[in-house]
Amino acid sequence: MLARFWHSDGFWMLRRSPAAMIAGLVAFLVIAGAVFAPWIASTDPYDLASFSLMDGLLPPVWQDGGMAQFPLGTDDQGRDMISAILYGARLSLLIGLMAMVIATVLGVGLGLAAGYYGGRFDAIVMRIADVQLALPAILTALLIDGIARGVLPSEMHGDVRVAVLTLAIALSLWVNFARTARASTFVERNKEYVQAAMIMGQHPLRVMFRHILPNILGPLLVIMTVDLASAILLEATLSFLGIGLPADSPSLGTLIRIGMQFLLSGEWWILWVPTLFLIALVVSINLLGDFLRDVFNPRLH
């Protein structure tokens, strides 16, 4: 199995692409750091007792006044920046991944069915997609957030924040999956292996999921990567606009928003540490997406 992977074309291309290797490494480190944050981070940024205002606004260790205990400095509350970004990345990735999974399931399901059945069902799904397209990602997310504010009593806002945010992002991303899955299904549907399955009298669900789906996974995987990156960006943007996650459970976007207040003062690290971390994460995911696109491009083989 490992040997097969090592000799596969995909891995051969990976070895030839230093950018993709570095990207893979960065993404791996960030994800590992986020997953294992509770064990790696020196303090728990959600636990008010674990840090003290006394340590507030300490610069990174290489600047005058920096302390070895806080390698990248602290924010105004005295939180360790490293702990804050690890926990922040954990939250950002969690929301991004969940949103992407929901969008994939919803979009691929509808797209497959629309492409397979065609006709009226296809028309309805595509008209809904049209409406969704007229209301772009940020707008949809803002809107759902707005509705949640209107419908739910204010004391509940904090608790359902993550769910609302995830749902909002997922809803704004499904169209991409649906359109791609539908277009690929249209092509596959007329291929002879699908016709063979239909002639045999196989159940439509079996034809869709067992026969067609494995053959359209390539482009979908590319979109999944790219959309994971967009989901993370979207979450950061919403948090930046102040309607994402609150300051007591900060995601990367929230950290950047907090850092903005220090843009003009000397404490540059409070803004730039989470910002650069976010950019590194998204760039590496996008690089991997680009790489996957090449791997799945039959012409490059």
């Binding site: 291929k191 002879e192 292996y193 016709q195 063979a196 399955a197 002639i199 045999m200 009298g201 026969h211 494995p214 053959n215």
Partner: peptide
């Protein structure tokens, strides 16, 4: 469905890759 079977034109697409 069983009694009638078919062999297709394009051997590259008639088997699920």
């Amino acid at each position: 469905r069983r009694l009638i079977q078919m062999v297709f034109q394009d051997p590259y697409s008639s088997l699920n890759a």
